[in-house]
């Protein structure tokens, strides 16, 4: 399932920018279905880099305390098992 989510995320990233509203709806639907299946996908793009956030594996390009996540190569994925979420994939990001 992780591989399917990653492919989905990549397709969405590729369409980004001039993404049509109707296509965005399809992605929202897909993520909704994934959530129903117990998968929560978190895209940390634009977030402030947080050294306490274990759900991301960052390549940090600056030693500033205000580094931001500027690129997400893979999203963070949590899976619901017995009503609680568990991290199953760390987001791979670049922060600068």
């Amino acid at each position: 399932m992780k591989n399917i989510i990653n492919q989905l995320f990549e397709i969405e990233a590729k369409l980004n920018g001039d993404i049509a509203k109707s296509v965005q709806r399809n992605f929202e639907r897909l993520y909704h279905e994934l959530q129903r299946m117990g998968y929560k996908v978190v895209n940390p793009l634009g977030q402030k880099y947080d050294e306490r956030d274990i759900s991301i594996e960052a390549n940090v390009l600056t030693n500033s305390n205000n580094a931001k996540i500027v690129k997400v190569l893979k999203p963070a994925i949590y899976q619901k098992i017995d009503e609680t979420y568990t991290l199953v994939q760390k987001a791979i990001v670049i922060a600068e």
């Binding site: 050294e51 306490r52 956030d53 274990i54 759900s55 963070a76 949590y78 609680t84 991290l87």
Partner: peptide, 10 residues
Amino acid sequence: TRLDGGFDTG
């Protein structure tokens, strides 16, 4: 630490 494995203050 957060029990879903996504947060740790160190």
